[in-house]
C-alpha cells in the first residue's frame, strides 16, 4: 500500500439474503481491493447478520455467499468493524460471528482476527478518519 492510499470504508447495514445490498457490497469491496487503497468494512444494524456463522442456504435455493467473507484476508481487507450495539440489539455476541482471519505479512504471516467489535464512539472516530465512505 503506497503512501497515497486513501482510506475507504464500506458501511454494511443490510441483512444478507432479503435484498441484494449485502452481496453487491461484498463484490464492490473485492473489486475495489484491486486498487490498493486502505480498505475497511463496518457492519452496523442488520449488516451484522452478514457475519453470522452457520449460514446454510441449501434448502432455500439461494447462493450462500458467507464463505466469501473468509476470502477478504486474501484480498488484503483485514479490518472488519462490528458495531457492538447492533450486535447486542439483535441478541448476538461475538461467538455468533464467523471466525475471519488474515495472515499478517509484516509479522511472519501470523494468523490474526479480522473482526473487531467496536463501540459507538470508536466507530464514530473511525468514520471521521476516512477519505471515502460508501454505504450498502
Amino acid at each position: 500500500m503506497g503512501n497515497g492510499a486513501k482510506k475507504f470504508m464500506y458501511v454494511n447495514r443490510r441483512a444478507p439474503y432479503g435484498t441484494i445490498y449485502a452481496l453487491e457490497g461484498l463484490e464492490v469491496v473485492l473489486i475495489g481491493a484491486a486498487f490498493d487503497q486502505d480498505v475497511s468494512m463496518a457492519f452496523v444494524d442488520d449488516g451484522v447478520f452478514q457475519l453470522k456463522k452457520g449460514q446454510d442456504t441449501g434448502e432455500s435455493n439461494m447462493k450462500n455467499f458467507s464463505p466469501t467473507y473468509h476470502a477478504l484476508g486474501d484480498y488484503e481487507v483485514t479490518k472488519l468493524y462490528v458495531d457492538r450495539e447492533s450486535l447486542g440489539e439483535r441478541g448476538l455476541s461475538q461467538d455468533d460471528l464467523m471466525e475471519l482471519t488474515y495472515e499478517d505479512e509484516d509479522d511472519d504471516y501470523k494468523e490474526k482476527p479480522s473482526i473487531r467489535i467496536v463501540d459507538r464512539k470508536e466507530l464514530m472516530k473511525l468514520m471521521e478518519e476516512q477519505d471515502v465512505i460508501l454505504n450498502f
Partner: peptide
C-alpha cells in the same frame, strides 16, 4: 469450493 468466488489474479498469484 471453499470461498465461492474465483480469485482475482493477484490473489491467485499469491495463493
Amino acid at each position: 469450493e471453499e470461498y465461492q468466488i474465483a480469485p482475482a489474479v493477484r490473489v491467485l498469484t499469491k495463493a
